[in-house]
Design a binder for these strands. Structure first.
Lengths: 339, 339
DNA sequence: TTTTAACACGAAAACGGTTTCGTAAGCATA
DNA sequence: TATGCTTACGAAACCGTTTTCGTGTTAAAA
């Protein structure tokens, strides 16, 4: 690769010092008009652009925000990222995106890599394995250093930090209410294991709605999916009992879409026999047959908020820190054919 | 934010020089064993990690690969990214992902930003607007400098460079052959405007299959979607004529899924009346009703290959350059219920 | 006793910028 | 003529590392 022009080469070429070039390029009026013009013309002609590493090192500021997410193939996270990018872009920040692949070790590696000077702040959605282990020392170390961090969606329970979350509990509650309002009595839920915070909250809200109505969920109508086993089999169990639910809430889009297909294969009509509602921000719900009613998550908003928060933290002075915030992104129901 | 420990602070604390610390940390046996032990213990205790900016500046090597894609919410691109990440991770590279949002200007900005020292190489899938304009000067400048670049999926036509593409033409051809082999006679295609290279190639292959069979596509059965108008309306036109196709190929997953829904709404049965086949690597095709037959793109493979190529270019010596390569990722048919 | 070599460490330059401070030249003022 | 003030620029430090090239000390060899 050919070397790019830098301030030194310009200086040598023009017979002035590097400092003169630097000042001339920013139109410092410390430098004579002729010299300024000469330097600027030369720089333009050779398409000079300052080296960002050198700038970052000098200014102790990279204008980069690190983002750590568990999986990039999850549509929700890509919505969040596009929201982050939208704000970052406005404020001249760039993104460095790392994937933890839901692994604790990779998450730690990513964090170490990013916090060694590469980024000014960090946006994190925690890996499943980390949540399962419950080990958050790597976050606490950074928080103690007052490194700017904002957690989003999957947050560390019981840790003081800035957070942006979806109102999962209320979303689950509204899903329950909606099914009940459609006259459904025997409700079911397709959920996730205990350590996945968001799943738990959605489930909790769902149960709250049901209790308020004086109803209950039969144990066999509560399926907690273990992703390491066959998902379709686990869902199918809900339809192989003598009784079957007439309204099902799934805590994510894929489970809901799969459940709809499986129910149809078992001969149930949607929504006549069973109504379905999913929790999602995805692209699938419009394309299923019938189209799926969902609790919309607004991942883009979440990204916006998270980016705003972290940038605010980055600019904050050492002396006047604002207290930690938790921003809640509220959901809303998008009613389609499945209810 | 509290300052991190660096080599200087360690040196000062231990009463030795920065160079001694640096050497001690890499177990240089230029340094006495006691001093080495002392420095290493201190570094470990304070969790010292070298500043990556300083390292990059010094070594003229960032261990970062820049990726520019049009949209992160396109599932195909996220598959490619996860493929890129897989290889990059193995070779200790990190990713800096930028979004062009399919805009020419943003693409240029991204490139300028990334090539000012931030990355060692670049992986690019070109913005639609750039392809439309046909202006590739920003790429040619970099290629002339011999900056390591690999284009993937959406490539600049007629430019010498490393490229990784899906075998779109063959994919289209196979889609056509499959529909014909099912006895379909009146074929239709849902495609994209001319400037989207991949769409054109898929269409070309499709037509080749049809011509070989001595058949033809009626003009009203060729719909080129303009995304700025209502997509469903444009697709619907195919079903409002007196004649209708009995086999439809859509050049992407969303168009195919939408078309299936619209056809069903119009009362057609799939695949009895109309067979559908989509071009995709997505998550939707398993969840539609009926499930969708697709030409699978293997975005993950594409990401692998692209990353391997660019890393190879990065390590290449100035003297012995290998000639430009074009790697073709072949597709395969995944047959499901829609045919 | 002198030379030589090994050992253990430090000074300084380099990566590519920015910024503070110093200073020579030119001119006006007393 | 001596002093002060601009003007226009350069030297040098700094950001955090690495690495080359000394150099002073000690011990071994001559």
């Amino acid at each position: 690769m050919h070397k790019k022009v830098n301030i030194k080469t310009i200086a040598a070429e023009l017979g002035v010092s590097p400092s003169t070039v630097s000042k001339a390029l920013k139109d410092s009026h410390e430098i004579g008009v002729e010299t300024r013009a000469k330097v600027q013309a030369f720089a333009k002609m050779y398409n000079y652009k300052p080296n960002s590493l050198a700038l970052s090192l000098r200014n102790q500021k990279t204008m980069v925000i690190g983002v750590i997410i568990p999986q990039i193939t999850h549509h929700f996270f890509t919505r969040v990222i596009s929201g982050i990018e939208f704000i970052a872009n406005q404020k001249d920040y760039n993104l460095m995106i790392c994937l933890s692949k839901d692994e604790y070790e990779k998450e730690i590696q990513n964090i170490e890599m990013l916090t060694n000077g590469s980024v000014d702040g960090l946006l994190i959605s925690i890996a499943n394995e980390t949540l399962e282990k419950g080990e958050f020392g790597h976050f606490e170390r950074l928080l103690k250093q007052e490194f700017p961090i904002v957690f989003f969606d999957r947050i560390p329970p019981g840790i003081q930090a800035d957070k942006v979350i979806v109102d999962d509990e209320a979303g689950g509650y509204n899903a329950g209410k909606l099914l009940l309002s459609k006259g459904r009595k025997k409700l079911g839920i397709i959920s996730t294991p205990e350590h996945v915070t968001v799943g738990v909250l959605r489930e909790r809200g769902f149960y709250r709605a049901i209790q308020e109505a004086g109803a209950e969920v039969l144990p066999q109508f509560n399926v907690k999916i273990e992703e390491k086993f066959d998902i379709e089999n686990q869902i199918d169990q809900m339809f192989t009992q003598k009784e079957f639910p007439d309204g099902i809430f799934a805590v994510n889009e894929t489970y809901a879409a799969l459940a709809m297909k499986i129910a149809q294969k078992r001969g149930f009509q949607i929504p006549r026999d069973i109504a379905f509602i999913g929790f999602t921000d995805g692209v699938i719900s419009r394309l299923t047959t019938p189209t799926m009613t969902t609790i919309a998550q607004h991942g883009h908003n979440m990204g916006n908020k998270a980016a705003e928060l972290v940038i605010q933290r980055i600019y904050e002075q050492e002396n006047d820190k604002t207290p930690n915030q938790t921003v809640v992104i509220s959901t809303n129901i998008v009613e389609r054919e499945s209810t």
